[in-house]
Write a protein that binds this DNA or RNA. Structure first.
Length: 560
DNA sequence: GTAGGGTTAG
């Protein structure tokens, strides 16, 4: 067979527009050993990685067929991938190849420098994102520090790297740094990244600052920025502000509506969420999978069993959205809270999807509300089978036994936890004052104003007792290794944060507290009575659920 | 061309 010249093959490869043609050329090359020519090989890689094919997994696979890839080839592979969207994600596979071949990931930076690409901004940002995906934030920072020219995308990649790797506070700092620098200023993408960080941190004041910047820069007409604002305000418990942004938008898409519906849902405005869903259809916007997650969670948060059932049963028929694990989870939550535990259990066992740990945990929470010991034990067994049981699950089981008065069973679980070496995580509550975040743990004595805080808490307790508040200490167990529960109960982290809030804000100011675990029944009652006695709105966010306390009432249909 | 908005149940 006549050997085809290299040039011809490359132009042939470049003219291929579909995968099957490329594969034909590929098999011909393998037969003639042409494939192992690095230049031809690279043209192949690029062809697969770039539009219109953009098949990164395939280019990864043919790359791993190459018998002796050298560092330069790896570098070019990253480059080929960097020229396509989602490059860094497939870069993870590439990284594993690198490790197997004995080249360290840091060598990539060196390679890029050696090959004279250090001024290539696109390649370096792709490299940063690549490190970020590998959770190697330090390496990403290093690349950023050594970049001679940083454009706004490089900053955004850095910010996204920190938010992705649980360093949300750093993301906020970077926003300030960018604004104070002489170089590029935050753009729409920077704003939505930072707003997401604010939403996670419950950092309302910082979020408001970003909002002001958005208006100053005229970015408020960018749809994605407005969508992020809606989420930020909702996640900080400010539905009115979220609705305000929503109302002012000139054009709303499915994401806008979903953000608004979910915001209303998590803040306890179930009926408004359903109303918004109907309005959305009147405006001719077609709902998506996530719209239904928001809608069903609205029903579960507000105890709307009939409505939830109706949406769940018709979503697939009327809107073509097949229920996924989140939808089923919302239904289990909805039925469980309503006390329909058997129905919830049947729903889980009848699903075509395999239930995950979170699903069983939802049911376990319902067993705890309705004190259903037998089912609770069964659910724990399922979690053990999944090897997914966590401290929080045993605490729930403890509370199920404890409120049913099964002292022996409580001791049994405690013993089991000790034997298995299960450690509980310490809960904390945060409160933002003048842009500064204060964190409290249970029985915390580390705050500089601890004396005033404890005195204020004692005074609050006294006032609330007069109003009829009785500390509930029998049914709630929170910390197995801790001191006596009665002691720990009166100094829960949220109570300390609230006392600090009452102490340091003028009368009538809303108190906003974020808690990382769930609020207990006693603290819930405490907040209810406090909102009436002190005439203050109290908003507690525990995980993703909001509790709005006002005039002695809470927005939730049940206590959590 | 590289970054990027809605869900994730307790």
């Amino acid at each position: 067979m006549k050997r085809i010249p290299e040039k011809t093959i490359i132009s042939l490869v470049n003219s291929c527009t579909c995968k099957s043609h490329l594969l034909q050329v590929h098999s011909h090359l393998l037969r003639t050993s042409h494939f192992y020519n690095p230049t031809i090989f690279l043209s192949f890689l690029s062809r697969f990685a770039l539009p219109p094919l953009r098949d990164l997994s395939y280019s990864g696979r043919i790359f791993s067929c190459f018998p002796e890839p050298n560092v330069s080839l790896y570098n070019n592979m990253i480059r080929a991938h960097s020229l396509s969207r989602g490059s860094a994600r497939s870069g993870v596979q590439l990284y594993q190849e690198l490790l197997r071949s004995g080249i360290s990931s840091n060598a990539l930076s060196e390679t890029v420098a050696k090959d004279g690409h250090q001024s290539d901004c696109f390649l370096l940002t792709a490299l940063m994102d690549f490190y970020s995906c590998l959770e190697k934030g330090g390496e990403a920072c290093k690349v950023f520090d050594e970049m001679s020219h940083r454009n706004v995308v490089a900053w955004n990649v850095l910010i996204s790297c920190h938010t992705r790797n649980q360093r949300t506070l750093v993301a906020l700092t970077l926003f300030d740094m960018m604004r104070n620098s002489n170089g590029c200023q935050p753009d729409d993408v920077t704003c939505l990244l930072v707003l997401k960080a604010c939403a996670n941190l419950n950092a309302l004041e910082f979020g408001q600052k970003v909002h002001r910047y958005i208006v100053e820069q005229g970015l408020h007409n960018v749809k994605s920025v407005s969508n992020s604002l809606i989420t930020m305000y909702s996640r900080c418990g400010c539905v009115e502000e979220a609705y305000d942004v929503f109302k002012k938008m000139l054009e709303r898409d499915v994401i806008t509506w979903t953000a608004m519906i979910s915001g209303l849902a998590s803040n306890g405005y179930g009926l408004d969420a359903i109303e918004a869903f109907k309005e959305m259809q009147r405006e001719g916007i077609w709902p998506g999978e996530q719209t239904f997650t928001g809608l069903l969670s609205a029903c579960s948060h507000s105890g709307l069993v009939k409505e939830g059932r109706m949406f769940f049963n018709t979503m697939s028929r009327d809107f073509g959205v097949v229920p996924n694990i989140h939808h089923y989870g919302c239904m289990v939550d909805l039925l469980g809270r309503a006390g329909l535990l058997d129905e919830a259990f049947d729903l889980i066992t009848s699903m075509r999807i395999k239930p995950d740990a979170a699903m069983w945990r939802t049911l376990l929470g319902a067993c705890r509300i309705h004190q259903h010991n037998a089912l609770g034990e069964q659910v724990i067994e399922r979690l053990v089978e999944l090897k997914a049981q966590e401290a929080g699950d045993y605490i729930l089981l403890l509370n199920i036994y404890s409120s049913a008065g099964h002292v022996e069973k409580v001791m049994e679980v405690r013993k089991m936890m000790k034997e298995k070496g299960i450690r509980t995580t310490q809960a904390s509550s945060t409160i933002e004052l003048k842009g500064q975040v204060h964190q409290f743990f249970a029985d915390d004595i580390s705050h500089p104003r601890k004396k005033e805080i404890y005195e204020m808490l004692a005074e609050i307790n006294q006032q609330l007792r007069i109003a009829g508040y009785v500390a509930e200490i029998t049914s709630e167990v929170h910390n197995v290794q801790g001191k006596s529960d009665a002691y720990a109960l009166s100094y829960h982290s949220e109570k300390l944060a609230i006392a600090f809030g009452v102490l340091s804000t003028p009368p009538g100011t809303t108190i906003r507290v974020a808690k990382d675990l769930r609020i207990c029944l006693d603290c819930h009652n405490f907040c209810k009575v406090l909102s009436a006695v002190y005439n203050r709105k109290v908003i507690i966010r525990d995980r993703n659920r909001f509790h709005h306390f006002q005039e002695g009432r809470c927005s939730c249909s049940d206590y959590w």
